[in-house]
Design a protein around this nucleic acid. Structure first.
Lengths: 245, 245
DNA sequence: CGGTGCGTTGACATTTATCAAACGCGGTGG
DNA sequence: CCACCGCGTTTGATAAATGTCAACGCACCG
């Protein structure tokens, strides 16, 4: 059940990118009990309405949070990569108001709420960092919302690509304007609030403009400056202390 | 500068609706130093890019958080009523990534960050409640986003009306399926991601269905059940412990 | 070798935006 | 007291963006 030491190294790294930890705090986080699971793609982790007793940490692969409407339409509100804790909110809000699923094959660690609560009680510094983390998460959702409500499909898609590149770069998963984007156009549509067909056309259009290519789950950004300009992408909302790009 | 005792009573009430406070915590919150200001409608409070040194509490009136794009289009991500602390995040994320404005004439209290930090350090229970509050706030934004991305204008608008009624009811500002809705159709459009013209048509359509009327800044919901059904409104995301409605 | 899932394309339908104008109403100054 | 003005609402005509439906190709896999 309890993981070997290096399993939560990615989490420690992520938290330190959000705020400072003391050596004792680092160690306490790394020593959290974590049950590691390998999951297939499109696999439910937690469902709306449930009351989970643990939080999960992404070790590998992509996860998403979403809601599904009666019509079957799905809106993804966030994409999660290694280092993220997508359902940390369940620690304070017992009933899930959305779903958490894998998009790709994934490796996740489950940490019992109880262990987290003990950690937070003993190390208020960790609590502060996690709080800050949930605020950044919320800021990303708000920005996503602005794109959904007020940007055209082209700009919106470009904005998402910029965000996912920068986030992966910060996590050490990308460099050189090249990063994994291992999800289908249909999932992308659920994230962007667009139909699959339209996503396809928008991507082609971005490619025709010489801005990106997207092949075999790899995104290549050929002209970062123009893509940023087109999407009016301003990384402030990621609240990174170091300078992005 | 420092407010008379009852000024922050609404804040205490709101926090207690989010989580339990001890008598000492209640008192400490009520004793926070607060500079009260009266503001006109459409008045900026904090701008994107700024580093505010205080958080504001709404005492009266409506505020909104928004981003404005280069094209001049505005997306409102949340509406705030008495008891809300719309910019609490500035305590942990120094640079604002959005704007905070009044929509109506408003009374707001400004609380210095320093005083809040001292409060949180002395009363971890208050910190926990505020954290939970920011998580609920994030949950509302996510739901708003689902509406924006995947619901048609009619359902979306209905959903917003349901939310604003319930939130005001919880704050003791509404009852009997009647509540203030003191904002223009143009602001409503910026919240819903729709044009003013379309908002107008949607509202007429909701009225024609016998679901609501909206006159002189007052919303009347004539058929709560049907409005909830139409909008697939599920109040889980408000995370109220008492049963709504 | 035949599925199955994903990407692509075309034709067409629908929703929503945009533009322009008129209306109503409360406030204000002559 | 009345005319005018500004703001918000309402209406109609038209345009643009995006969705839906249907079909096809292509690669991977059993």
């Amino acid at each position: 059940m309890t993981a070997a030491a290096p399993a939560l190294a990615g989490l420690v790294r992520r938290l330190e990118s959000i705020g400072p930890l003391t050596a004792a705090e680092r160690e306490a986080v790394a020593d959290l009990p974590a049950a590691i699971r390998t999951l297939p793609p499109r696999c439910p982790i937690v469902r709306e309405g449930e009351r989970p007793g643990q939080c999960c940490v992404v070790l590998q692969g992509w996860l998403c949070r979403s809601n599904v409407l009666g019509s079957g339409k799905r809106q993804i509100h966030s994409l999660h990569i290694a280092g993220d804790m997508p359902d940390l909110q369940s620690l304070h809000l017992p009933v899930m108001d959305h779903n958490l699923d894998t998009l790709t094959p994934a490796l996740v660690a489950a940490i019992p709420h109880e262990a987290l609560r003990e950690l937070l009680a003993s190390y208020p510094g960790v609590a502060a960092v996690l709080w800050r983390g949930t605020l950044i998460d919320a800021a990303m959702v708000r920005q996503w919302m602005v794109c959904l409500g007020r940007r055209a499909a082209l700009e919106h898609t470009g904005h998402l690509l910029c965000e996912m590149y920068l986030r992966q770069q910060a996590a050490g998963l990308a460099a050189g304007f090249r990063c994994p984007l291992p999800i289908t156009q249909s999932d992308l549509g659920d994230a962007l609030g667009l139909s699959t067909v339209h996503v396809n056309r928008v991507l082609q259009s971005l490619r025709a403009m010489g801005l990106i290519t997207l092949q075999n789950g790899t995104l290549r950004i050929h002209d970062w400056e123009r893509l940023v300009a087109l999407s009016e992408f301003d990384p402030t909302y990621l609240h990174r202390e170091d300078a992005p790009v």
